[in-house]
Amino acid sequence: MKSYTCIVEGKVTGGKFQSWVIDAALRLGLKGWVRNIDDRKAEILVQGEPEAYEALKQGLESEAPVPDLKKVTCTTIEYDKVHDRFEARG
């Protein structure tokens, strides 16, 4: 399935970043997950309509609660699993 991954670099722990991503993804009808890679980086896997993905990507760059946002890098990938919801992962 066509999917998208985003790596968000900045202070992603200790705030409301994951909650913001989950709320935005649910509002946009996206499936997948978000997880912290370390205290300054998070990874997001998104499945859904391209327009909804673009809206999430724009929100990550301009609205997400990351006080010292350094960079958002998103790519399109082929992913063999189809997700039925959006969730936080360990």
Score class of each variant (00 low, 15 high):
residue 28 L to P: 01
residue 61 E to T: 11
residue 8 V to K: 11
residue 50 P to H: 13
residue 19 S to Y: 01
residue 10 G to D: 11
residue 21 V to P: 04
residue 12 V to M: 07
residue 62 S to Q: 11
residue 90 G to N: 15
residue 26 L to M: 07
residue 43 E to G: 11
residue 70 K to S: 14
residue 74 C to M: 14
residue 2 K to V: 13
residue 9 E to D: 13
residue 78 E to G: 02
residue 72 V to F: 02
residue 31 K to D: 11
residue 9 E to C: 04
residue 32 G to Q: 05
residue 70 K to W: 03
residue 40 R to L: 01
residue 37 I to P: 06
residue 53 Y to C: 06
residue 79 Y to T: 00
residue 24 A to Y: 05
residue 6 C to R: 11
residue 82 V to Y: 00
residue 66 V to M: 03
residue 74 C to Q: 10
residue 28 L to S: 03
residue 44 I to P: 07
residue 23 D to I: 00
residue 24 A to R: 10
residue 21 V to W: 02
residue 56 L to Q: 11
residue 89 R to Y: 12
residue 6 C to I: 15
residue 13 T to V: 13
residue 55 A to P: 04
residue 6 C to M: 15
residue 70 K to H: 09
residue 76 T to Q: 14
residue 88 A to H: 05
residue 30 L to M: 06
residue 49 E to H: 07
residue 42 A to V: 03
residue 10 G to T: 13
residue 81 K to P: 03
residue 52 A to C: 05
residue 51 E to K: 02
residue 89 R to D: 12
residue 47 Q to N: 08
residue 85 R to S: 11
residue 37 I to W: 04
residue 32 G to L: 05
residue 61 E to L: 14
residue 81 K to G: 01
residue 15 G to Y: 07
residue 39 D to C: 04
residue 3 S to A: 15
residue 60 L to E: 09
residue 32 G to P: 09
residue 24 A to H: 02
residue 15 G to A: 08
residue 63 E to N: 10
residue 53 Y to W: 15
residue 72 V to E: 04
residue 64 A to M: 04
residue 13 T to S: 03
residue 3 S to H: 01
residue 77 I to T: 06
residue 41 K to S: 15
residue 68 D to Q: 09
residue 57 K to F: 10
residue 80 D to G: 06
residue 31 K to L: 14
residue 36 N to W: 12
residue 15 G to K: 06
residue 53 Y to M: 06
residue 34 V to T: 08
residue 8 V to N: 04
residue 67 P to T: 04
residue 59 G to A: 03
residue 67 P to W: 05
residue 28 L to K: 01
residue 25 A to D: 09
residue 71 K to N: 14
residue 30 L to A: 07
residue 4 Y to A: 13
residue 62 S to Y: 07
residue 11 K to R: 15
residue 70 K to Q: 14
residue 36 N to K: 12
residue 27 R to C: 00
residue 55 A to M: 09
residue 24 A to D: 04
residue 47 Q to R: 02
residue 28 L to W: 03
residue 1 M to N: 08
residue 38 D to K: 06
residue 24 A to F: 00
residue 13 T to W: 00
residue 78 E to C: 06
residue 82 V to K: 08
residue 34 V to A: 11
residue 85 R to G: 12
residue 9 E to I: 05
residue 14 G to P: 06
residue 7 I to M: 15
residue 9 E to H: 07
residue 52 A to I: 04
residue 37 I to Q: 08
residue 62 S to F: 12
